[in-house]
Write a protein that binds this DNA or RNA. Structure first.
Lengths: 123, 123
DNA sequence: CGGTATCCCACCTGATACTG
DNA sequence: CAGTATCAGGTGGGATACCG
């Protein structure tokens, strides 16, 4: 991290809570599905196997509050709500893809390291 | 994420737990401080304002298990333990730096979005 | 359909004490 | 120094029920 090696380690660094809210379990996956196309609440939920309604609601609110996704209410009956990625959110695609690509590329190494570690501990 | 748009959304995708364990609150900061130089336990703790001993211990174990950091016991008295970044861990620097750079670059946008959102909700 | 409200429990936290 | 152990207390998640 050339250039900002000092501030980020301070508890009051402004980027810390952002990093926490954006680099979490579900946000990356939500952004990925929405980047392909805008989707409605339950459409997102169906695509993200394992997410609960509560977790999805919370993650979407957080992303909306941070300007990453937009929420549009379509006044039909029953109500339809469409979520889409904002221009700001699109700029996150590159960093996220890099991180995801890393996990895929190094998955064998990591799993090997885990086996080694567990064997050392257990015998 | 060109090329792997399908698997990651499945609950049993192998990269999911890795992503969870690596893109968490403290791992990025720990890796950043250790990339500059190997450090002992309390040296890391002093640099990461706000982390508890327990949280640091857990994060280091997880990083060690995944082959990201190495733990070396130096048999002096009292015991010294030095943590360093492995070659595998070094390859994570680029993706992490990209993500951190993003938060710094877009911090004003995000804070503005937060103010707008909060004002809409509260009035 | 897209949520909110509620309950309950696992977990994380912080503080403190103890050990090799 | 570098942890582990323990306990109290608060937070968040899962399951369920209900609402516009």
């Amino acid at each position: 991290m050339p250039g900002h090696d000092k501030q980020v380690f301070r508890a009051d660094c402004a980027s810390r809570p952002i990093l926490d809210q954006i680099a979490d379990k579900w946000s990356m996956l939500i952004l990925a599905v929405l980047c392909a196309q805008p989707l409605r609440f339950n459409a997102i939920k169906r695509r993200l196997e394992g997410i609960t309604q509560k977790a999805l609601t919370q993650a979407l609110r957080r992303l909306e509050r941070n300007g990453i996704v937009a929420r549009r209410v379509i006044p039909v009956s029953p109500v339809a709500v469409e979520y889409s990625v904002t221009p700001l959110g699109r700029t996150l695609q590159q960093p996220f893809a890099a991180l995801y690509g890393w996990t895929v590329d190094h998955l064998p190494d990591i799993e090997q390291a885990q086996r080694d570690f567990d064997r050392r501990k257990n015998g």
